[in-house]
């Protein structure tokens, strides 16, 4: 059934076959199919000796599966999360603007977020240690303005504060910008609440938390306020 046996029946003129512009075929389509079909299905032909090939292939395939399985298990980081996420990755209605923060309630560390917000704005004047700069910016640490009346603190952060001010016995005359809707920062009620909670609990201050609802309430109550407060107003 080998092709080379079939070839005995053919007569080829070898001289014409040396032309590179032709490609001589050594087997017809029927021969190819017949031979390979018999290789695949015909088990009748007796075989001499013992063929190593099937054994080698079995060993090769098994060892590949073994090695790759170990490799995969060792490097599968994120697979479980990935499978869970796979259903949401391609959702036609998915819009990161809307769904970015996730639909579920997120547990946040108010103190850490407040610290981060402090680092974005307040730190420039009040400094990393909350001590401010003598005769220019008042301290926040151990300041009655910070740890004292909650409503007064919320008001001055929302609308700003300017003019003469006495803190811990020292006199200041500067400008505190507004962080609420009237100012340039436009911070949300949540951001203001978090940063206030932070400054009330850092540097040895031990005052209570301020919630976003408190900020909202003060904001609505002082909606008619235009421009910054002075110390006298408060």
């Amino acid at each position: 059934m080998k092709l080379r046996k079939r070839r005995k029946g053919t007569k080829m003129s070898q001289d014409a076959n040396s032309d590179p512009r032709l490609e001589v075929s050594a087997a017809s389509d029927q021969d190819i199919q017949a031979v390979h079909a018999s290789l695949l299905h015909d088990q009748k032909e007796p075989k001499e000796g013992f063929s190593l090939m099937p054994l080698f292939v079995l060993g090769f395939v098994s060892s590949m599966i073994f090695v790759v399985a170990i490799y995969f298990i060792h490097n599968r980081a994120g697979l479980s999360d990935g499978l869970a996420l796979a259903t949401t990755i391609h959702h036609p209605g998915y819009d990161p603007q809307v769904h970015g923060a996730g639909d579920e309630e997120v547990e946040i560390d108010v103190f850490a977020v407040g610290q981060s917000l402090y680092g974005q704005a307040c730190i420039a004047c009040h400094q990393v240690n909350g001590q401010g700069i003598p005769s220019a910016f008042p301290p926040l640490a151990s300041s009655d303005w910070v740890t004292g009346d909650e409503e007064r603190l919320i008001k001055l952060v929302l609308h700003g504060l300017q003019g003469p001010l006495e803190v811990n016995g020292a006199q200041y005359n500067g400008i505190m910008p507004a962080f609420g809707p009237s100012g340039i920062y436009q911070w949300s009620d949540e951001k203001i609440a978090y940063v206030l909670t932070y400054i009330r609990q850092e540097w040895g201050n031990e005052a209570g938390e301020i919630t976003p609802d408190q900020v909202t309430a003060v904001k609505e109550a002082t909606a008619s306020q235009t421009g910054a407060y002075t110390a006298a107003d408060l």
């Binding site: 070839r7 490609e23 050594a26 087997a27 190819i32 390979h36 290789l39 695949l40």
Partner: peptide, 17 residues
């Protein structure tokens, strides 16, 4: 290749794997 060289594939069952 088999057609051009006139020799069958070495191990045809292996081709299926």
């Amino acid at each position: 290749i088999p057609k051009r060289v006139g020799r069958p594939i070495t191990n045809y069952p292996l081709a299926q794997i």
